[in-house]
Amino acid sequence: MKTTILDLPEEELIEPGNRACAGCALGIAYRAGLKALGRDTLLVVPPSCLTVLQGLYPIAATKLPSLNVTFASTASAATGLLAALKVTGRTGVNVAAWAGDGGTSDIGLQALSAACERGDNFVFVCYDNEGYMNTGVQRSGTTPQWAITANTPLKGKMQPNKNVPAIMAAHGIDYVAATSAAYPLDLYDKIKKALTYGGVKYIHIHIPCPPGWGFEPRYAVKLGKLAVETGLYELYEIEKSQLRHTGASLKLMEKRRLLPVENYLRAQSRFKTISDAEMEKIQDQITRKWEGYFKSSEEAQGGE
């Protein structure tokens, strides 16, 4: 069942007003995500923009208990919390880790992979602002090709990004989902569903970042939606190995019309050096990918 704005829990688990930049989409995602996790949750947070958002000692923006840990150790720390809950006989408490894309796809991947393999029971959220934002916008494993960052300053990043949800799905875990801060209800429902499964559940959240990507703070949600409506970023879930598009991406399947990716790329200064030819290549890749989706959905319907 889909949650609507009317039946979202009213209780806020993050205080209004925090230390993130104006227009940061992380605040939207965190607010909805914590509502889904609920009050009985222990959080793990590695160094990232979220550390700053949560506040400077002695003031905390989050109403949930939260353990700040070292950069590479997020998933292992979550395992440690689970172990402590178990040996001290506490039940009914969720453990959730919230790491950035760097903390997930780069330095934190080893520990996360190990936790998946051990089947430790927690939700791992990767909020993907597509770069090391906390240290001043350097490239990460999920920074898209051609994006200008502080350490790809002139030509942009040369390599395509890694597909982290696919890496996670390859561990054979029961639930992997990709969602976006621009669709907080989609995000909410996915975390809720994740909580019904055992083992590591992986939630990837697209987080438009005004200073990192180069757009005005008021456009964060618009950029998030454009990423989805152009077919570049997809909302989906992989539940017991079954991939299914959700929300606005599912609608794209029905409408069969993608917005041009140029609308998304030209709205951000990080892509200012991208050439028309490169842009066309990206458009081609997206078009081909979605034609494949359309075809397989037709085949699936035809077979019914």
């Binding site: 353990l67 590479a72 150790s73 440690g80 919390l81 402590a84 080893q110 190990a114 051990r118």
Partner: peptide, 28 residues
């Protein structure tokens, strides 16, 4: 012996688990 034994993938994680477990009240 009644304890949770966690076979980790690295020493960094071994201590991560002890740190988190102790932060949540377990002798580690």
């Amino acid at each position: 012996m009644q304890a949770e034994y966690i076979p980790v993938e690295s020493e960094h994680s071994a201590l991560a688990i002890c740190i988190a477990a102790a932060s949540a009240g377990a002798r580690s």
